[in-house]
């Protein structure tokens, strides 16, 4: 479901959350999500507490609720799946408003919805408070292979260029009176995709040659090494640790 990525992802700001080094934030978000996923679904109040934690982080980072909610729409396809669950899962039945629903299905739907939404919200907050480049630096700091980070950075850098190229082709098609209405027009669109591939690949070759002529030998020097102090780690760890506490309470209660 690649649609709907047109939003501006990063919200510029100077809050304490924005100021944390990127790798601490990535670790914190991942830790939080892992804790959320391993919480038993019967501890309903724990999920409310997690949501409150995320809301506190969002408030601290001065991310407006509207922005967060709009970005959560990415999840919609799976919500549809979750809503089907009470109808297809066999098991004990209950009646709500005259419709018979299955109890395990309701629990399953709740489980997927709650955990999925919290996970998505955590990633949205991460991306909203961290610049793309900083995120990649953070990933590199976390020992992701440098080549993989380079590929990802090239993809992000040229993603908009390639997408714009696609948009220009679409404008060119439409200005010549073409309108894709059905299966019969797939040939034209596929030829555009083929042209897009050739242009992207050739652009990659040009970029490579331009880089080689400037002394590229396969590694990109890291100019601003990101480091985190103990206090910054402690700040970042506040979120997953609080979540862990809630999780442990949820398991025992």
């Amino acid at each position: 479901m690649g649609a709907g990525h047109a939003h501006k992802l990063y919200r510029h700001g100077h809050s304490p959350v924005h100021g944390l080094p990127p790798h601490t934030k990535i670790v914190a978000a991942l830790g939080f999500v892992v804790v959320v996923v391993s919480t038993p679904r019967e501890a309903v109040w724990a999920f409310a507490a997690y949501a409150a934690l995320l809301a506190a982080v969002a408030a601290r980072a001065r991310i407006p609720a509207g922005f967060l909610l709009r970005r959560l729409l990415v999840e919609v396809p799976f919500v549809a799946f979750a809503l089907l669950m009470p109808f297809v899962v066999p098991g004990e039945q209950t009646r709500v408003l005259g419709i018979s629903l299955s109890v395990p299905g309701l629990w399953g739907a709740w489980n997927v919805l709650a955990k999925g939404t919290l996970g998505t919200a955590a990633s949205v907050l991460l991306a909203a408070t961290t610049e793309l480049r900083a995120l990649l630096l953070g990933l590199q700091r976390l020992k992701l292979p440098p080549l993989l980070v380079q590929i990802a950075s090239f993809m992000i850098r040229y993603g908009d260029v390639v997408t714009d190229e696609m948009r220009r082709m679409s404008v060119a098609r439409r200005s010549r009176g073409f309108e894709a209405r059905g299966v019969r027009h797939w040939g034209v669109l596929a030829k555009s995709a083929g042209a897009l591939f050739i242009r992207s690949y050739e652009r990659g070759e040009r970029v490579h040659l331009a880089m080689v002529s400037r002394g590229y030998t396969g590694t990109i020097p890291v100019l601003d090494e990101v480091t985190a102090t103990r206090a910054q780690w402690a700040h970042a760890a506040a979120l997953p640790l609080a979540a862990l506490l809630i999780c442990l309470l949820g398991r025992t209660l």
């Binding site: 993809m155 897009l196 591939f197 690949y201």
Partner: peptide
């Protein structure tokens, strides 16, 4: 050397082509 820019651009292509609606 070639792997990073070329694979990066191909990844960008895959990303873009996923937005091309048929």
């Amino acid at each position: 050397e070639r792997a990073a820019p070329l694979a990066g651009l191909v990844a960008a292509f895959v990303f873009a082509v996923q937005m091309l609606n048929f």
